[in-house]
Design a protein around this nucleic acid. Structure first.
Length: 882
RNA sequence: GGGAGCAUAGCUCAGUCGGUUUAGAGCAUCUGCCUUACAAGCAGAGGGUCGGCGGUUCGAAUCCGUCUGCUCCCACCA
């Protein structure tokens, strides 16, 4: 096969991905092999690929490809998430462009638009994953709103309802006025937000609804809610306000009378010690309201605008209203002062709108028992979190969990299977038909027409927590006693889960709960939590900031393998990832290196002829080095240190194989290679390809096929991971000495400006392994290597490799002064070192307490140092005499 | 406000049970090279008081305390 001078990723990538698909290499069916299963963290169906996906899916693909080459039956389930809030928002936005609002159309019409949108955009991200090389079993692609998966969600709801864990209740919920829905506590992000503390005067009423001159001062951040005030509360122990007991005050501007009450919730030393109680718009105030039987006056509508109950500023957005009411209060003489103030404000994780606490009827799932099980799964180690620092966070959350608000005031999603009778009673059933049967038990006259299904849908996480089960067997969730189907029994539990720490609670914890509940078994054994991808400045990559490169552009420019390498290189386990394009460039350069190293070997003529000693040594050395690295790589993989595994292979390939091994065995220009060396070289290259394939699937497949004629349907994907053979530590140590010597000789060349073409002679004093002499000669272009007991008395340069002395005669090229200075510096360093060692050794406590091994090592250091000093001194003497 | 974590070379990070020739890697930097696989390259080199202070120990990047600076999670003082 003729190889182009440069590696051309785009050509190669498309070719092999098509080949893999054609041959169904990614597809898995249960068989007698051990399964290895990963479910993809389903991206939003409307999403497009960003750097976070690239990181996550690269890691997933590395794991799945590694498992496949390890002989396991590897199955990676792809799919997408319906993401109700995000998707519904997009559909709403699109309708808006057409001049349609949600209120104009029916639920059915809206859903038609939504599905249309899904069909158009739903596949995009999965298509993009192919460009990255993801080896997902596409035949098993799932969507969380596939009919059977949706039914699974409904069944689950019915299951928990019948178990008594789901209830309906009026609660103060986190209302998202932009998304027009309640969101769960976990979907609220608190951020310190700069605002103002408004000090307002509430005048005391004379008892007939008229203001007196006396007033009290309330400090509030939300003056626009005063019209919803139901009382003013002070602490019962606060003597400053005892005079107000039994009095009433007037709400500014609207002059409504409200009582002054006492509640110990109020902190005396915060603000003015007076709290305006607004039960409809604050969680704490709601609690106080319950205690004191206060009316609830809800003045903010579902879009965050003031309604007619506010009496003033009706129809104004809450933030506009705030600005306006401050002016009105000022004019009316009710504004005492305004202070700058910073306080935590809740924002919707999906829409970034400021959350409005709002009273509404919602569905909740009791979490206590489920969280208990899920906590145990992690505490017992049945589920391992990597890195394990997340165990603390996880525990804290599980021990402080609140009931889960699972209803959402949206249309896109699984509709809550609660059916209301005209009298307000309701039944819960997996289908309308069954609901009708249930309803008729209450009232035999019920018809399908007057049985009305709940309008709300379920939280998206209420479907994705079933993912590791429902992708295999959608009948199982909701039916803990049912027998799992063949796929589920074979593939469940999955092995590893790779995801971001930001959804540890949203998704991971809840999957564990669902696994416990429906399978009696955790859904995975290891959860590898990646970092968050940030830019060089440490900012989270986001569309709004525009600081995220388009992964597809990167793949086009550098190749998928390079992008994968780039991501992995900057992703040490458990830390945030500071994305840097330079890393992708490094990946591209590595591809080039691999490519060229193959072109070199491929170009050799091979003849049956004796193997040079240098080659024989290099082959033995590299075999050991390879085996040693395989062990290291396996160890890294077992600890999910993918970045370290990659670096180990990278250095083996680049430094050891290319820069060292190939340079040793490389025939002289025009010369041929011997058979033994060539065969070894090819087998090494083959092993290297297989070792790096999980990380760089494309270039390795290309070269695997270039390496020899392959049968149709052959692939590196199923070639076994190289197994480590014996490691000869001695040859590795010896070779290292040779490499060190080579470095020294090369340094001498650079310092003395001696070309690589000019051969140098070398005298060696000490135990330099003789077998390494040919390697040294080849790599440093050394003519003769002589083992001597005394160096010749000619001018030259000497240096040390460990305790071995080496000398290169250089005649007139030597600057004696310089050499003397160099050796003296060396000596000074060495003497300092010796002093340190001796100080230790002369410390009786050290000798008495330290383990023998350590003391022996210090003695060896001392001896070595002495011998070095001795030889340096003799070199110095020789120089000074010359 | 509560909790957790981090701080090692210019950058990103390793550093296991406290001891392995006075701290390692990749990238970046500097110097010299268009040497017939590769200048997206080759060869060589420089660069660190392991955040500060105190303690334990024969011995501390590593263990303990404390201070400083960051990060994350949780949280209903208006």
């Amino acid at each position: 096969m003729e190889l182009s001078a440069k590696y051309n990723p785009s050509e190669v990538e498309d070719k092999w991905y098509a080949y893999w698909l054609e041959n169904k290499f990614f597809h898995s069916e249960p068989d007698e092999r051990e399964p290895y299963t990963i479910v993809i963290p389903p991206p939003n169906v409307t999403g497009i690929l960003h750097m976070g996906h690239v990181l996550n899916n690269t890691l997933n693909d590395v794991l799945i490809r590694k498992a496949r080459m390890d002989g396991k039956n590897a199955c990676w389930i792809p799919g997408t998430d319906h993401a109700s809030i995000a998707t519904e928002n997009k559909v709403v936005a699109r309708l808006k462009e057409k001049g349609i609002t949600k209120e104009d159309i029916t639920r059915e019409e809206f859903l038609r638009y939504a599905w249309e949108w899904k069909e158009e955009h739903g596949g995009i991200i999965l298509k993009q994953l192919r460009k990255l090389g993801a080896s997902c079993d596409w035949d098993r692609t799932k969507f969380t709103m596939d009919p059977e998966l949706s039914q699974a969600v409904i069944n689950t709801f019915v299951h928990f309802y019948r178990k008594g864990l789901i209830y309906r209740g009026v609660r103060m919920v986190n209302w998202d006025p932009v998304g027009h829905t309640a969101v769960s506590d976990e979907e609220v992000i608190h951020r310190d937000t700069h605002s103002h503390f408004y000090h307002l005067r509430y005048f005391i009423s004379d008892g007939n609804g008229n203001p007196t001159d006396d007033y009290l001062i309330i400090a509030t951040t939300r003056p626009e809610t005063i019209m919803a005030d139901a009382a003013i509360s002070v602490n019962p122990a606060d003597e400053r306000y005892h005079r107000l007991r039994g009095k009433k005050v007037l709400i500014p501007l609207i002059n409504r009378e409200i009582p002054v009450i006492e509640d110990s919730y109020v902190e005396m030393d915060f603000g003015t010690g007076c709290l305006k109680v607004t039960p409809a718009h604050d969680v704490n105030d709601y609690e106080i309201g319950l205690r004191h039987n206060l009316p609830i006056i809800d003045i903010i509508d579902e879009s965050g605008k003031l309604n007619e109950k506010a009496q003033i500023l009706v129809g104004e957005d809450r933030f506009d209203a705030r600005k306006k009411i401050v002016e009105m209060l000022r004019e009316a003489g009710n504004l005492e002062k305004v202070e700058d103030y910073t306080s935590p404000v809740g924002y919707s994780e999906r829409t970034d709108a400021v959350i409005e606490p709002r009273l509404s009827t919602q569905w909740f799932l009791k979490m206590e028992a489920l969280a208990g099980m899920a906590l145990e799964s992690v505490e017992s180690g049945k589920v391992k979190l990597i890195p394990d620092k997340y165990r603390n966070t996880y525990r804290h959350w599980m021990e402080n969990v609140h009931d889960w608000c699972i209803s959402r005031q949206l249309w896109w999603g699984q509709r809550i299977p609660a059916y209301y009778l005209p009298d307000g009673k309701y039944v819960v059933a997996p289908s309308a038909e069954e609901a009708l049967v249930e309803a008729r038990k209450i009232d035999p006259a019920i018809t399908p027409e007057n049985l009305r299904q709940d309008d709300d849908v379920l939280d998206t996480w209420f479907s994705s927590w079933l993912w590791p089960i429902s992708v295999f067997d959608a009948d199982k969730p909701g039916h803990p006693d049912a027998k799992p189907n063949a796929d589920l029994s074979y593939y469940y539990p999955t092995n590893d889960l790779v995801t971001g720490p930001d959804i540890l609670f949203f998704w991971v914890a809840r999957m564990i709960m669902a696994g416990d509940e429906f399978m009696g078994k955790e859904p995975f054994s290891n959860v590898y939590l990646t970092g968050i991808v940030r830019d060089k400045l440490g900012r989270k990559m986001s569309k709004t900031l525009g600081n995220s490169p388009d992964p597809l552009d990167l793949i086009k420019e550098f190749g998928a393998d390079a992008v994968r390498i780039g991501m992995l290189l900057c992703s040490s386990a458990g830390n945030d990832i500071f994305y840097d394009k330079a890393m992708v460039e490094q990946g591209r350069n590595f591809c080039g290196k691999i490519w060229n190293s193959f072109r070199l070997v491929q170009g050799w003529k091979v003849e049956d002829k004796p193997q040079p000693a240098s080659s024989a040594t290099a082959v033995d050395w590299f075999r050991s080095k390879l085996n040693q690295t395989i062990n290291i790589v396996e160890d890294h993989y077992s600890k999910f240190r993918i970045s370290d595994a990659l670096m180990a292979i990278y250095k083996l390939f680049w430094d050891d194989y290319c820069s060292t091994y190939l340079e040793v065995i490389k025939p002289a220009y025009g010369d041929s290679a011997d058979r033994a060396t060539y065969d070894a070289t090819i087998s090494f290259f083959d092993a290297l390809l297989r070792l790096i394939h999980p990380v760089m699937p494309f270039i390795t497949e290309e070269l695997y096929h270039a390496l020899e004629e392959r049968k149709d349907g052959d692939t590196i994907m199923f070639a076994p991971t190289p197994k480590a053979g014996e490691v000869d530590e001695k040859i590795i140590a010896d070779f290292e000495k040779a490499i060190a010597a080579v470095g020294q000789v090369r340094a001498v060349r650079q310092q003395k400006n001696i070309s690589m073409k000019e051969a140098l002679d070398l005298s060696v004093k000490g135990d330099f392994p003789e077998s390494m002499a040919p390697v040294l000669q080849k790599l440093a272009n050394v003519g003769s290597v002589e083992f001597v007991s005394e160096f010749p008395a000619s001018a030259g340069v000497s240096f040390m490799v460990g305790t071995i002395e080496m000398f290169i005669p250089l005649g007139g090229k030597v600057n004696v002064e310089e050499e003397i200075a160099k050796i003296e510096a060396d000596l000074a360093h060495q003497r300092g070192f010796l002093e340190g060692v001796r100080k230790k050794l002369s410390n009786e406590n050290f000798v008495a307490h330290a383990p023998e091994k350590v003391v022996a090592m210090e003695r060896k250091k001392e001896a070595d140092s002495l011998s070095k000093i001795e030889s340096l001194e003799s070199q110095l003497k020789a120089l000074k005499n010359s």
